[in-house]
C-alpha cells in the first residue's frame, strides 16, 4: 500500500544496512599506519609459535576500537532520533538535556580531585562521567515536569539553562586546573575512541545494544507521540509511561556512550535527519537504520581521524563535524523538495 512501511521492506533494509556496516568495519580495520593483510590478521598464531604482528594489531588494537566506534555511533544516533521525537523538535540532539555538560563536570571533578583512587583497578573518569550525565538529565527532567506535563518548551529551556550553567562551572574549573589536569580534561572533552579493554566493551556494548532494541519496541508509540501527546493519548497510548521509558533509555545509552568515548558531536543530530530525509520519519524504520548508519559513520570518521595525520591522531569529533556538515548539506539539497521546516 502506498505511503506505509511493510515489515518485509524494513527487514530487507535493516539486513542490507547491517551487511554494509560489517563490510565497512572490516575494511576500516585493515586501514591504518601499519598495513596488514586480512588473511594474516585472521590467523591466530599457535601457542609457542612466533607472534603474528598482523593478528596482534588487528585483534588487540583495531577491532576493539572499531567496535567501540560502532557502539557509540549506534547509541548517539538512536538517542538523537528519540530525543527529536519526544521533544517534537528537529534540532534536538542527545546532549540537549545536559548530558554532555553533566558528564564533563563529572570528568573534571574526577581529574582535579586527583585520580589517586581506582575502581576495580580502573580510572574512575568513565564512572564519574556516567554519574554526572545521568544526575544532570534527571535534574533537567525533574524541572521540566514541574513546568508542565505536555509542554516540552519548559524541558528544553531547563536543558539549555542547566547546560549553560554547568559549562560555566567547567570553564571555571579548567581555568584553575594545572596544565596536566587540563590536558586530560580537554582530551576527554574532545572525544576519543581508545578503549582497549574488552570487558568494558562488552558491558557498555551490551547496555547500548539492549537499549537500542528496547527503543525499537517503543517506536510505534513514538510515531504518534512525535505528532502530539494529546493525539497519542486519544488513540490509546499511555503517553507518560512511554515517554518516561524512552527518555530513560535514550539518556542511559547516551550516558554510556559518553563515558566510553567522551563528547562526540554531530552524530546524534545529523544521522537521524539524514535517514529521515531518505527513508521518511516512521520510527520503526528510523531507529534501526539511524543506529546502523550512525555506527558506520562513526567507524569511518574514526578511521580518518587515526590515519590522516598518522602517527598522530585527530579527535574524532573534529572529523564528524568536518565530514558530517557537507554530507548533510548535500542530502538536504538533494531531498529539499521533500522537506518542510515548520515555522
Amino acid at each position: 500500500m502506498p505511503g506505509t512501511l511493510a515489515p518485509r521492506t524494513l527487514l530487507i533494509r535493516i539486513g542490507v544496512a547491517a551487511v554494509l556496516l560489517v563490510l565497512v568495519m572490516l575494511a576500516c580495520a585493515l586501514v591504518g599506519p601499519q598495513t596488514i593483510s586480512l588473511k594474516a590478521a585472521l590467523t591466530a598464531p599457535a601457542t609457542g609459535a612466533a607472534p603474528n604482528p598482523d593478528y596482534e594489531i588487528f585483534v588487540r588494537i583495531r577491532v576493539p576500537r572499531i567496535l567501540l566506534a560502532a557502539l557509540v555511533g549506534v547509541a548517539l544516533a538512536s538517542a538523537g532520533a528519540v530525543f527529536q521525537a519526544l521533544l517534537r523538535n528537529p534540532l534536538a540532539d542527545p546532549y540537549i538535556l545536559g548530558i554532555s555538560s553533566g558528564a564533563g563536570l563529572g570528568v573534571i571533578l574526577a581529574v582535579i580531585g586527583g585520580l589517586g583512587w581506582t575502581l576495580w583497578g580502573r580510572s574512575p573518569v568513565a564512572v564519574c562521567a556516567f554519574v554526572g550525565a545521568l544526575a544532570t538529565v534527571w535534574l533537567v527532567w525533574g524541572i521540566g515536569r514541574i513546568t508542565g506535563k505536555y509542554h516540552v518548551t519548559g524541558l528544553l529551556l531547563a536543558g539549555v539553562v542547566v547546560n549553560a550553567f554547568l559549562s560555566a562551572l567547567i570553564l571555571f574549573l579548567t581555568s584553575i586546573a594545572k596544565s596536566q589536569q587540563l590536558y586530560a580534561t580537554i582530551f576527554w572533552l574532545m572525544g576519543n575512541l581508545t578503549e582497549e579493554d574488552f570487558l568494558v566493551l562488552w558491558v557498555g556494548g551490551g547496555g547500548i545494544v539492549a537499549g537500542a532494541i528496547g527503543l525499537f519496541f517503543l517506536s510505534p508509540q513514538l510515531n504518534i507521540i512525535s505528532v502530539g501527546p494529546q493525539d497519542a493519548r486519544s488513540v490509546g497510548v499511555p503517553v507518560e509511561k512511554i515517554e518516561l521509558a524512552a527518555f530513560a533509555i535514550a539518556a542511559f545509552i547516551t550516558a554510556v556512550a559518553v563515558s566510553l568515548s567522551g563528547l562526540i558531536g554531530f552524530v546524534g543530530l545529523i544521522i537521524p535527519h539524514a535517514v529521515r530525509l531518505v527513508f521518511g520519519p516512521d520510527h520503526r524504520q528510523l531507529l534501526p537504520l539511524s543506529g546502523l548508519a550512525g555506527a558506520g559513520f562513526l567507524v569511518v570518521a574514526d578511521t580518518i581521524a587515526r590515519t590522516i595525520v598518522a602517527p598522530a591522531q585527530l579527535p574524532v569529533g573534529v572529523i564528524t563535524a568536518i565530514l558530517g556538515g557537507p554530507f548533510f548539506l548535500a542530502l538536504l539539497i538533494r531531498y529539499s523538495r521533500k522537506v518542510y521546516w515548520p515555522a
Binding site: 500500500m1 527529536q84 517534537r88 510515531n223 504518534i224 512525535s226 521518511g280 518542510y340
Partner: peptide
C-alpha cells in the same frame, strides 16, 4: 482536533494508520 502541521513529515497514510496504534 483542529488541524496543525506535525513536526515531522509523516505521509497521509502513515498518519491515518496511527489511529490503529492500539
Amino acid at each position: 482536533r483542529q488541524e496543525f502541521i506535525p513536526a515531522f513529515g509523516y505521509s497521509v497514510m502513515e498518519t491515518v494508520l496511527m489511529a490503529r496504534t492500539l
